[in-house]
Design a protein around this nucleic acid. Structure first.
Lengths: 115, 115
DNA sequence: GAATTATATATAGATAAACTATATATGTCA
DNA sequence: TGACATATATAGTTTATCTATATATAATTC
């Protein structure tokens, strides 16, 4: 993840689940997609992603299925469950609240999140 | 810290150093001030703050001195060093970059931080 | 007067997130 | 043939923050 490594921790589950909201994806694809959508800011490591996905699967937030690729190893696709959708909404709400509170401390004054 | 506990991790050093930018403070005061400035969002625990402050002191980002209080125990004030100011600026920059990238993933499109 | 709460600092131990390093396996390209 | 991109996985480490606990004084409440 580089950047600062203290600032950056947390919120990976949110980002990964957000990706799955747009459609089923396999692990490697998520790493690439996250890099692309963040304009090369997030470089999620495979060693971080797979344990995270297994954890989300264990909690029932995502489900997984194998699918043959046209070439190479079969891919393990992940799908956001109904429960996952609910949890994602909560996590987004939580992130907005948090980012907003940080902004209040850093810049002073108010912050109505949405903006 | 409550909230989500996965989203919230990281960035405490940034917030604490930001408080000290406005003037020297003692530990207990920082907990209260952080609560106030974040509109009751951040409830930093003493058991989290003091080890954090000792760590910042060890790195030379803050310096500390005792001062008698009019009543009660003597207070240990913390001061942001010159190096601390530099690191704070870097951390703020880093936070902006990070929060901006999260927004890109969550809401799509661009994000020029400052707004 | 005794008990509780607020002020104030500190450490030990637990938990969890993300990292590095490593392993495996296939396809492509120089 | 060797390097690199694709693709998944686990073990072990590091670090942030938490809970729990300890200490001590002042103010408040019963």
């Amino acid at each position: 993840m580089e950047l600062d490594k203290g600032l950056v921790s947390g919120s990976m589950a949110l980002l990964v689940m957000k990706l799955l909201e747009g459609g089923d994806m396999y692990g490697y694809q998520m790493v690439e997609e996250l890099k692309r959508r963040s304009d090369d800011t997030f470089h999620l490591k495979a060693g971080s992603l797979y344990p995270l996905l297994h954890g989300l699967e264990g909690k029932g937030y995502v489900s997984a299925y194998e699918k043959e690729a046209t070439a190479g190893k079969p891919r393990r696709y992940y799908h956001l469950t109904k429960q996952g959708h609910r949890v994602l909404q909560e996590k987004e709400e939580s992130w907005n609240l948090y980012a907003c509170a940080v902004r209040k401390v850093l810049k002073g004054g108010v912050c109505s999140y949405g903006t």
